[in-house]
Design a protein around this nucleic acid. Structure first.
Length: 425
RNA sequence: GGAGAGCUGGCCGAGUGGUCGAAGGCACUUCCCUGCUAAGGAAGCAUACGGGGUUAACCUGUAUCGAGGGUUCGAAUCCCUCGCUCUCCGCCA
């Protein structure tokens, strides 16, 4: 949620900045609603004051055994008026709030301006692409013989589900464990185990709700007991600080977790249907930092490095991309994507996304800290993948395939594979 | 799943219809006193949103005692629904 004061005081600037993201901010409607809200709120509070004072007076008079019929009649009338206007106030506040919840974050000044993916800026390319002296296969062709089974995935659950067996399942687990270990042991994140089902408050906090419900899987325990499967570990990790006031000295809070992620992928029909690039269920190591507002952009760069370090250790070529204004997610002020090289398609594919949400999520969550002068201020929240396990598996398979159809295990993973160096049939 | 108890400010805890945003204590902050590993005294000390303001300090209003609804002139206090915690029983990895 954007600061409502910013929208009030810098309306034209807000319109302009939001249009960079392709969002039309209806400032006229907003200002009208605000005007109305203000009028009604002042009136409401006045009536409340009258009611409170008269009621207090009744108490005093009664204790003096005086007759209070006249007073009671008067308050009765005030209360009736109040009831009506309180309903109006709630309505207009609800309208304003509903609208605020749908407005995406403002892009940081350093974000490249653009409409879509094509306008993203490549910051750097790292690592050398392997030369193959045979025709490279994609991960489906390589790994199908080794335990990667899409048919069984769809037999059990439908399209966009995968079953892994044997050394492929082992490799998948190895990658996840390896990544989590690096984030915890080398980069200083606190390891967490989180719920995979979360309530609506949590999803509102990080920005998935109310606008993007169709992207989520919803579970049902009873009539009104709704829980959603997490689309990313960012949701439980970030919501740890929801409705809280941190000590300034405790910042930054650095958290990580390895979780499954569940996404309905509504609206991506026909996209990436082959292989395990786009699944309903995948694993991901998530990094989250809760920082002082002055530190969040330093932390953003740091987190990109933390994600890059994984790719370097896995000896995978990649590039860092700064997402343009039109391609960023709803909650982000600035986002870097890491894209890993996939030789079968001759392209870089997203494997990590690292974002600074500034105070956007913090405001929704009421996540604050006490500063020097004892004032409560909003924290900044950042999140990033470090990394997506499924896509890392794809990259490892494709970049390390051999002529014979084997997979060489990157040395960083050998110990996680119980010493195994090659996966053969 | 069954039975019972509870949920009050950072923490403990009082408060069963009126002057209660809430006694008292602990912790914390500032000051005073003392001079030594501690004690005594004074004041301050929840959050959000309005209004005023030299837009800072501050003054002022409203709301919030697990959440939401209701009764009432008036609700922390009474009623209803829900959530959570604890104890016992059952079941279970």
């Amino acid at each position: 949620m954007i600061d409502i004061n910013f929208l009030r005081e810098n309306t034209s600037q807000a319109v302009e900045k939001l249009s960079l993201r392709g969002f039309h901010f209806n400032s006229k409607l907003f200002l009208e609603l605000e005007e109305e809200r203000k009028k009604i709120q002042i009136k409401t509070q006045e009536l409340q004051e009258v009611r409170n004072q008269l009621s207090k007076k009744i108490g005093v008079e009664k204790s003096l055994l005086k007759n209070t019929d006249d007073l009671m009649r008067e308050v009765s009338k005030t209360s009736a008026d109040l009831k009506m206007i309180e309903i109006q106030l709630h309505e207009v506040q609800q309208k304003i709030n509903d609208y605020l919840m749908e407005i995406p974050n403002l892009p940081h000044p350093t974000v490249p301006i653009g409409k879509n993916e094509a306008d993203n800026i490549v910051i750097r390319e790292v690592g050398s692409k392997k030369k193959f002296d045979f025709e490279v296969k994609d991960h489906v062709d390589v790994a199908s013989k080794l335990g990667l089974d899409f048919d069984l995935g769809s037999k059990l659950s439908g399209s966009r589900f995968t079953l892994m067996r044997n050394q492929i399942a082992r490799l998948h687990r190895a990658i996840g464990q390896f990544m989590l270990d690096v984030q915890v042991n080398e980069h200083g994140y606190e390891e967490c185990y989180t719920p995979y089902l979360v309530n609506t408050d949590s999803l509102v906090g990080t920005g998935q709700l109310p606008k993007f419900e169709e992207d989520l899987f919803l579970t049902k325990k009873g009539e009104n007991d709704l829980l959603y499967l997490i689309p990313t570990g960012e949701v439980p990790l970030t919501n740890i600080v929801r409705n809280s006031i941190q000590e300034e000295g405790d910042l930054p809070i650095k958290l990580t977790t390895l979780t499954p992620c569940f996404r309905s992928e509504a609206g991506s029909y026909g996209k990436d249907t082959r292989g395990m690039i786009r699944q309903h269920q995948f694993e991901k190591v998530e990094m989250v930092q809760i920082t002082h507002p002055d530190q969040s952009y330093t932390a953003l760069e740091e987190m990109v490095n933390h994600a890059e370090n994984i790719l370097t250790k896995l000896e995978l070529p990649y590039r860092v991309v700064s997402l343009c204004s039109g391609d960023m997610g709803f909650s982000a002020s600035k986002t870097y994507d890491l894209e890993v090289w996939l030789p079968s398609q001759n392209v870089y594919r997203e494997i990590s996304s690292v974002s600074n949400c500034e105070s956007f999520q913090a405001r929704r969550m009421m996540a604050r800290f006490k500063d020097d002068s004892k004032k409560n201020k909003l924290v900044h929240t950042l999140n990033g993948s470090g990394l997506a396990v499924g896509r890392a598996l794809v990259a490892v398979i494709e970049n390390n395939q051999t002529k014979e159809g084997y997979i060489n295990i990157p040395s960083a993973l050998v110990s996680y594979m119980n010493g195994l160096k090659v996966i053969k049939i």
